[in-house]
Amino acid sequence: MSWISNFLTSSLGKKLIMSLTGLFLITFLIVHLAGNLQLLIDDGGEAFNTYAHFMTNNGLIKFLSYGLYAFILIHIIQGILIALKNRGARASRYAVTNRKSNSFASRNMALLGLLVFFFLAVHMGDFWYKMKFTNELPMVAYAGIGVEVKDLYTRVNMAFQEWWLVAIYMLGLLALALHLWHGFQSAFHTLGLNHKKYTPFIKAVGKIYSIVIPIGFAIIPLYFFFLKN
């Protein structure tokens, strides 16, 4: 089976891994946003908390989430390794570089990725960790489900009263938007999908996606900060 390791350690194989994990994460973002937009429902958090309970307790979702964590880690680690190798491929740097030949986002994928990663750490530490591994969250009961569930909604509301956290989210989402701006079309290109016929379409979808999704996420902290007390 040496062909598999040959394949996956070749420059193109590494690219393929970045592309596939990236596309998975892109899909995840849609699901994640769809779920989290329930925070905007003005029902005291019932819909969202019920959803959060389901997501943390359903077996299949749990299974999928381990895959997700793995993909995130692979995407990050592989990305860092590639970036280090790429930097090393030009030991002596140019005195002058031309910024017009490529986009800011494409040049700085690793940096943007790291920013997203730090943002993710803050984000998960605040909510995911507290939800899963602590009993800090208050419990709440709803008529719809028989058990008491953790009140993540209140935690979210509290957290987003802090201006600095909201600022971190805005910056993190900006980094995410830029990362997607290049990453979306790039993932398809790596898979070999680049053709005059359909690439303009992929590019357009990618640009819409990389604007709409981060804005969707951004609405949530802004909503709590400005409209909820």
Partner: peptide
């Protein structure tokens, strides 16, 4: 050579 990161430069 480095890896391609699709910057299209």
């Amino acid at each position: 050579f480095g890896n391609c990161s699709n910057t299209y430069a």
